[in-house]
Design a protein around this nucleic acid. Structure first.
Length: 128
RNA sequence: AGAGCAAGUCGGGUGAUCGCUGCUUCUCCGAUAAUUUCGAAUCUCAAAUUUGAGAUUUGAAAUACAGAGAAGGAGAGGAAAGUCCGAACACCAUAGGGCAGCGAGCCCGCUAACGGCGGGGCGUCCGAGCGAAUUCAGAUCUCAAACUUCAGACUUGAAAUUUCAGAUGAAGAAAGACUCGGACGACGACAAGUGCAACAGAGAACAGACCAGCCGGUGCGGUCAGAUUCUGAGAUCUCAAAUCUGAAACACAGGUGAUGGGUGAAACGGUGCGGCCCGCAAGGGCUAGUUUCAGAUCUGAGAUCUCAAAUCUCAGAUUUGAUUUGAGUAAGAGCGCACCGGCGCGCGUGGUGACAUGCGCGGCCAGGCAAACUCCUCGCGGUGCAAGACCAAAUAGGGAGGCGUAUUGAGAUCUCAGAUUUGAAAUUUGAGAUUUCAAAAUCGGGUUGCCCGCUCGAAGCCUCCGGGUAGGUUGCUUGAUCCAACUGGCAACGGUUGGGCUAGAGGAAUGAUCGCCAUCCCGAUGCGAAAUCAUCGGGAAACAGAAUUCGGCUUACAGGCUUGCUCUCAAA
RNA sequence: CGGGACGUGGCGCAGCCUGGUAGCGCGCACGCUUGGGGUGCGUGAGGUCGCGAGUUCGAAUCUCGCCGUCCCGA
């Protein structure tokens, strides 16, 4: 597939996870990476791109306004980190759970935390 | 100018970059399994050497589909929230009626409808206001106090004066009434029935009698006063004692009744009168009782020389007659009557109506609570867009039809029938069922169309029909719509004309970052006496996210604006 | 989208229907019992009855509106 080399920060719909079964599969078989603002679950897929699923529960985040905002922030984070993700050897299905502290965090903090998680994933790739 | 309250309204603006979801237009690419058009090649057929028809293959274009990209334009709320009411819409159920259950409940209007909204009525509370009536005088009556006079032993009673208080419409104030304004009201019925009310209190719902009060009765000893004396002492009039009578107080048992007290959230409406007869009434008459006088009877004491009787005098009780006054009663009435107030009923007047108001009648007095049971009137079928409609994989299964499930050989087991055998048993023959092995055949798929062959699969296979899951499409945004002008109505709201199209997601889009400008707060600097102003820096900016769609209600909410009312300050 | 239940001392629950006094168990504190602890006995403290309105003379209780927790159906 000839993807345009232009900075593709887009996140179309086919890169999203939606079915409940897929989430369950990733929770069961994937690996977990914890952060202060979020928790990520990863599982390899056979596609040529990454896929993302975001969760923000009432219990963890709060009311619907806050849940919507948390979802958007995480999607934005994933979208803008395409360069880092392309650095990985394989492609994964990601499930990121939002935490309440995400809402009050600043942008840099979010990016640094996400990059740390990506580096951990890369380290695990090299080890195996 | 500031503060508070109420109502209405707005809910930061603008630009850049990167994203998301629909819509419109355009470009590119893919697959050809679709359709149409055009062209080429091969084959077949017909006429005939060039056409026509058909089939197959192939190329191009368009539409549709899928993907990518570009441009344009759109993209959360006043509450999107809570899900408390009411509807639209959809499906299911349903002859009609009743019970149960749930809900609503002053009247009229608005509305598609409502438990919503507007206006009105009534009730409770609050505030303001002005005017009217009345009063500021006199008279009369009642009570109290002081003083005076008279009577009396005291208590006390009567009269007059003064003062104070009260009643008779009764200073002022308060309250009430009237007018205006505001707030609140789940505002049918407790006068159908059942029920509830702690504590306190005498008594708490056809009530009750504690204390004070009132009444007569009884009691006892004392006190006081009077009368009398076969009494005693001093002595001719006093004291003491006894007897009788009366008075006040006390005690006891009882009666009376609701006047006052006290309790409580609440204590059964208020005031007055009280015989009988006549009379509509005004009033009149009679009687009980009262005042005075007279008589009779009884009791006690004294006198008439002594005793008894009789008579006379005095005191007390009972009773008769006359006379005076003339109804209260032993105390007095929840008993009776009247009036006022409330209530109910009837009629009239005003109002669409709730209701208001006047008159008459009744003669009821009936307390509170129905967000106590209950009764009355009215309304209510159920489920909800995951409603429902359409298209429709894979797998399993349903119905109908068709083709098959065959044949041959060998073997095993079981069942039935027959034959042989005296019988059992055994042997054997035939039929049927199950099953093992082998052979060939059948059906379906693949191998470019056909045949052979090869290969895969199967005891089933094929075709059609219907239900239907995943999934997709739709319902899904043009609507009881929005804006403006005019217009009807006190208002809620309605009408006419013109214009606009303003989110439609679906594990769920509407976001992130950075500027600038406004708003508020803090700090620094500058001009300046100060406020203000200017510049710079920092900070704050709410409640909250559409999920089928509307009309309301409720709840949350930084700040701004408008209007009205009230208060404070300043100026005039 | 629709339906239901609950909220009372530190914890678990009564009381609510039928309105007037908030109670039970465990725990806590103190004392006694024991050589000490436990057990046992006795005494005591501790409650805005989730919040706000209303009805009533009076509300944990009745009514309404909010808040929170939990459960169920499609």
């Amino acid at each position: 597939m000839v993807t345009p080399v232009k900075r593709s920060n887009a996140l179309p719909k086919r890169c999203r996870l939606s079915a409940r079964a897929e989430f369950q599969k990733i929770y069961a078989e994937g690996q977990r990476y914890d952060g202060r603002l979020m928790a990520a679950f990863l599982r390899k897929n056979e596609l040529d791109h990454h896929r993302l699923g975001v969760t923000a529960s009432t219990k963890a985040v709060g009311k619907s306004v806050d849940r919507n905002r948390a979802r958007r922030l995480l999607r934005e984070l994933f979208r803008r980190s395409a360069d880092e993700l392309n650095g990985l050897e394989k492609h994964y299905d990601w499930v990121i759970n939002a935490k309440r502290s995400l809402l009050k965090s600043k942008e840099e903090l979010r990016f640094t935390e996400f990059r740390r998680i990506v580096e951990q994933v890369a380290r695990n790739e090299r080890r195996s």
